[in-house]
């Protein structure tokens, strides 16, 4: 097995990525419960800092975007922009039932129903809201996915095309 400097550095970077996932939380119009539970993860009881997880304010610094909740029409374009601002490699976790389908708000008139109509989702978490341990599980799932992606040299192998929505067309008109 040939050990090259490039290969080593790549392995080092992959090791580091799995150990320092910085997250940013985007509330796309949710009911707060998921946000509370995410903050509860940071607390002494669960303390996700022992996995190296930090909650960052700026999407520029983050690796994982946690979207809490269904997407209201007004938040859809903003969500898309926050996602576009994040540097690669980036991962998205959709929190709870609302992230997967809108949950109890499924089908209301001012909503997009689910997050994956706006941005591609990597990991789903069940629950309304998920318990903090389930959130930790989700981050772990996401990190496993990250390792797998590193083996396959990118996320393309999962064939998750970036969905094109009307929101995106609208957004692209605004962002130069």
């Amino acid at each position: 097995m040939a050990v090259t400097a490039a290969g080593l550095s790549q392995r080092l970077v992959n090791w580091a990525r799995a150990r320092s996932p910085w997250i940013t939380v985007f509330n796309s119009g949710a009911c707060n419960a998921c946000d509370i539970e995410i903050i509860a993860c940071l607390m002494p009881r669960f303390d996700v800092e022992r996995f190296g997880i930090l909650v960052k304010g700026s999407p520029r610094h983050a690796d994982i975007l946690i979207v809490t909740g269904h997407v209201t029409l007004k938040q859809a374009s903003r969500l898309r922009r926050v996602w576009e601002q994040m540097p690669e490699p980036k991962y998205v976790i959709a929190m709870g039932a609302c992230g997967a389908s809108g949950g109890v708000f499924h089908g209301l008139y001012h909503m997009m129903d689910s997050v994956d109509k706006v941005i591609p989702i990597d990991v789903y978490v069940a629950g309304c809201p998920p318990r903090p341990d389930e959130i930790i599980n989700a981050v772990v799932t996401c990190l496993n996915l990250l390792r797998e992606d590193a083996l396959h040299g990118g996320r393309e192998w999962r064939k998750k095309a970036v969905p094109v929505t009307r929101t995106e067309e609208k957004t692209c008109g605004v962002i130069p």
Partner: peptide, 10 residues
């Protein structure tokens, strides 16, 4: 806002 660290809500 709507995405800002001080605001947990939009």
């Amino acid at each position: 806002g709507p995405h800002h660290p001080a605001l947990k809500e939009p």
